[in-house]
Design a binder for these strands. Structure first.
Lengths: 329, 329
DNA sequence: CATAAGCACTTCTTTATCTCAAGTGCTAAT
DNA sequence: ATTAGCACTTGAGATAAAGAAGTGCTTATG
């Protein structure tokens, strides 16, 4: 069993290491704890025995193990209030009514990257609640026109299409058909409805129905696309633990290629998820903290990626605060 | 004056250094030149005297100076044919008719980043030839609607607006007015036309004309926005000359913050512009090669950013090839 | 018996020294 | 004009020594 004093020591070590990035020795702790370094040392040995601390070499100070961070996060950490300065920056964004929701989200996480020096990620999708509102076509020339599609929550997709060999009549007929048949359909059901209900009918009326079908299929499909934003990637280069160019490159490449799978871990449910070290899909020395948000317009995940010795308390609070503001907006 | 043999040696040194990233010694050159290393050495000394070569320390091999690269680029380099493999990858993109122009551009430069390991940049704007085609509104609820604006070349912009306190009538009146008065106007003249011709009139008819005016002003303004894409940034970490994390961070931060000014140098005219070392605004050890493209839909700049010892011949040809394909599309 | 003091022992870090390889510049010979 | 030969310079790498930080263990103590 872990004693109260051991908890206190573990907490101090984690906090000290997060702040200083250097192995923590018994002397650094005994000052704040009012006991001798020898006592601290024996407690440290016990904590190592329990698996919460590690040494980098036989005579080094202690570093939190993955289990150590985990225990800290689950049991010892207490939320840290957002500083007035940080709060102000975030409020400036959320109180700006000119900004669209998705801009608010992106900007607020940019702020987080700025103030924390971690990398932040937004992964958003249009909410399932979006339904098709209207399809419009605008002819540009004899051979091309633009299809504009809009949802009831105000999302717009469009595509310029080559209509050589297709008469304006036919296109109009198709659009009318779509407007009659699938307006009001939730965006993630459009594809199947288009295929099984609309396609058979336009097949009868329209010569080049295959081509037209594909165009609409593509445009509608775009609604279900995710948008991915990654901010503050070069912050990783500021971390003392990543002074090797090779290591940084490896991480940056993963951020470029794998972001989705990194952020969309096996979903644990719960409010805020914290993945430490090996639990992440980036690198054993990294931590990912994420939460999901959901509004009637769009939903998604926001996440902060940083070193294992991340300021957990601060980041958790920032994410919670941002999530609240998104959902209230 | 520089002799033919000196030119040959300079060229060999530049090419060797580009390939190997290590100072080039006289022995490496004399083999290919059929003369003794002592001869090469005296020629090298002459080239150093002329300012084309440098030493990293008194007894090191030679490295091209900025002037050396410049002389190579201006006088010695001959274009290098694009390899069949590379050509194939690019053609796959340009021959794909599904892809929109801007996607082609972006994708082709992604390819370049992949095959060369340099960073590539696209900076695009809608062409000045775009004129306003049509303004549409789609009401979403009692308090909000979407404005959709489209140009004759098929660009679409949109914005969801809060119309609380404004009647649908008023909005419709405004839209009709805009459609009557400024359809056909080139996109970069819309703003002033909107302000000086439309604004005074809607002022008379519409109560909340200030708010409405701002909405349309913003939407139209978005047409003149530039889009910026930077691909392959983490390639910089692969370069042997940037093994210091600090240096890389500095460069990456400049790429994040300053891309426009880096790529949009004082325009020299000409087809392809090459900026070497101090001539760039990134870093003395970097080179920027760029060219402008122009189609009737959009125009812009494509650029490759890499180390001073860049494969100039290869990159120049790739850019030229891509430019041609963009403009032919 | 938990705590503290003392001390031997480890390991990393830093600094200094040495050696080796690569390469130059100069001189003298062809 | 070219080249062979040689002294000289410098960086890179290896080795060793000294110092700092910190541990674990043993023993003493309230």
């Amino acid at each position: 069993m872990i004693t109260d004093r051991q908890k206190e020591i573990l907490k101090l070590i984690v906090m000290e290491y997060i702040q200083g990035a250097k192995p923590v020795g018994s002397h650094q702790i005994c000052e704040t704890l009012n006991c001798s370094s020898a006592t601290v040392r024996s407690e440290m040995a016990a904590l190592e025995e329990l698996g919460y601390l590690e040494k980098t070499h036989t005579s080094s100070g202690r570093v939190p193990s993955e289990e150590g961070y985990r225990y800290y996060v689950n049991n010892l950490m207490k939320p840290k209030e957002i500083s007035g300065e940080d709060m102000l920056k975030l409020q400036l964004i959320f109180s700006n009514n000119q900004l669209e929701l998705s801009d608010c989200i992106k900007r607020s996480l940019e702020i987080v990257s700025d103030i924390t020096n971690y990398t932040s990620v937004v992964l958003g999708t249009k909410s399932h609640d979006n339904t098709l509102k209207e399809v419009n076509i605008v002819p540009l020339s004899d051979t091309s026109m633009v299809v504009v599609v809009i949802t009831d929550k105000g999302f717009v997709e469009h595509k310029t299409i080559d209509v050589q060999g297709i008469s304006l009549e036919e296109v109009k007929k198709t659009v009318t058909l779509i407007n009659n048949m699938i307006v009001g359909t939730p965006i993630d059901e459009i594809s199947s409805k288009l295929e099984f209900e609309v396609k058979p009918i336009i097949g009868r009326y329209v010569k080049e129905h295959e081509r037209l079908y594909n165009v609409f299929y593509n445009v509608f499909n775009n609604f279900t696309n995710k948008n991915v934003d990654v901010m503050g990637k070069s912050n990783i280069l500021k971390l003392p633990e990543f002074s090797s160019v090779d290591k940084v490159r490896n991480i940056l490449e993963k951020l470029d290629d794998n972001i989705e799978s990194i952020v969309e871990e096996s979903s644990d449910g719960g409010d805020i998820n914290i993945y430490i070290g090996k639990e992440t899909k980036i690198d054993d020395d990294m931590t990912v903290i994420r939460t999901k948000y959901k509004t009637d317009k769009e939903e998604g995940t926001i996440a902060i990626v940083g070193p294992k010795r991340m300021e957990y308390d601060r980041v958790v609070n920032l994410l919670e605060y941002i999530k609240e503001n998104i959902e209230r907006k």
